[in-house]
Design a protein around this nucleic acid. Structure first.
Lengths: 206, 206
DNA sequence: TTTGTAACAGACTTAACGGTCTGTGAGCCT
DNA sequence: AGGCTCACAGACCGTTAAGTCTGTTACAAA
């Protein structure tokens, strides 16, 4: 059983480094050899553990990206607060890690979605599924907020979730490079304005 | 002078087809030969007119992409209407062409921004400049709306422009594939809600 | 008509990439 | 101890890419 631990360890090292480089340079622009070189491993090792580059990437999606996105954008939604502050906190925090990362290359999921939107690759579906998880959780959180009286009944939760996700994906692309700090501030201010407008208001009782 | 006309004509054909394929398959995934094959031209022709693939793409950006983005998202902002309906109309129309295009591959500018955000390529700056034009025009339109009394003075125009652009870029990425129609509808509904909230306090039905 | 030059054609070079294949050494099983 | 399997090494292969180079042809000026 010692062999198996070694195997898992090596595969994990490959996946971690692979994701790092794929994220920084893009999937197609990163060669297997690039990854192997940094790990001082050989082609033999790679194709012993993975049957192809695509297979390798799918295992990265399912083993790392899924958890990362969940930990960053889904799990933090579940707080004691009412939904709108939870969403604001979650997104603010996600942008904070991006802002303070000099090597930030954008929203990992959006980057790969963009790269695989072209072609007929099956990988796109795995990516879309992760986004769907975020969307579903956002929707149910908003709906719960509505029944709990925090959010106005006039709000369409599906629409709102789509809008929030779209704006987040966009701002993350725009933050790459410079101005990240200003962009984040501008975005958060307007996101708050948008979200606060959904809150239950006594003055607007229809 | 007949030679020169021929030259311009050939270069334009190359740029048009080049953009088409770059947009559909991505810049790095499209080879010079792919383009040349469809035009029944040779490598000799290509490198006679352009000094490299990057140089070629830069000329595409400046000769085609700039105009396309301007015509789609900037020029339509200038209407007789007050700013907010103008913005809504412009974006609605931009999304309409995307929705009805079965071959839609996303927001052309966002796609290339995403592809070139990686690496140190100089191309990224040309792309960012185009986005900047849109941003500046959006800001000045909003500011004009503020002084004209259509938009509340509490609105920060720079923030709003950033937010609008971010959301547009995001939804265009999300629309690729399927559900384009639903996505567009959801997005537009929320965009309207967001924009109407900026209007000078008059009652507005939604 | 001659001659030069612009507009191409297409074979060739060089390098990189995904993937294969054969080999090798360390450790576990019997 | 002897064999067997697993984890890995690295040479090798086929393909494809960007870019070069040597033509060849058509037209325009002289």
């Amino acid at each position: 059983m010692e062999k198996n631990r070694k195997r898992m360890e090596t595969m994990h090292r490959m996946r971690a480094k692979g994701l790092e480089l794929f994220y920084q340079k893009g999937y197609h622009a990163t060669s297997i050899d690039d990854i192997l070189k940094e790990l001082s491993l050989s082609k033999g090792a790679f194709y012993h553990h993975f049957k192809s580059k695509d297979d390798f990437f799918i295992s990265i999606i399912q083993n790392i990206i899924m958890q990362k996105v969940y930990a960053l954008l889904v799990a933090p939604l579940t707080q004691d607060k009412s939904p709108i502050p939870s969403i604001i906190d979650t997104i603010d925090n996600a942008l904070k890690t991006a802002e303070h990362n000099g090597m930030d290359c954008g929203f990992i999921l959006a980057n790969f979605l963009n790269e695989f939107n072209k072609g007929d690759n099956e990988i796109i579906q795995y990516l879309r599924d992760i986004l769907k998880v975020w969307e579903i959780n956002l929707i149910s959180l908003l709906k719960k907020g509505r029944t709990d009286g925090h959010i106005s009944w006039s709000v369409n939760c599906e629409e709102a979730a789509t809008y929030i996700i779209a704006s987040y994906m966009g701002i993350r692309t725009m933050m790459v490079g410079n101005n990240a700090k200003i962009m984040k501030y501008q975005y958060m201010q307007q996101l708050k304005a948008y979200l606060y407008a959904m809150e239950q208001r006594e003055e607007r009782a229809y």
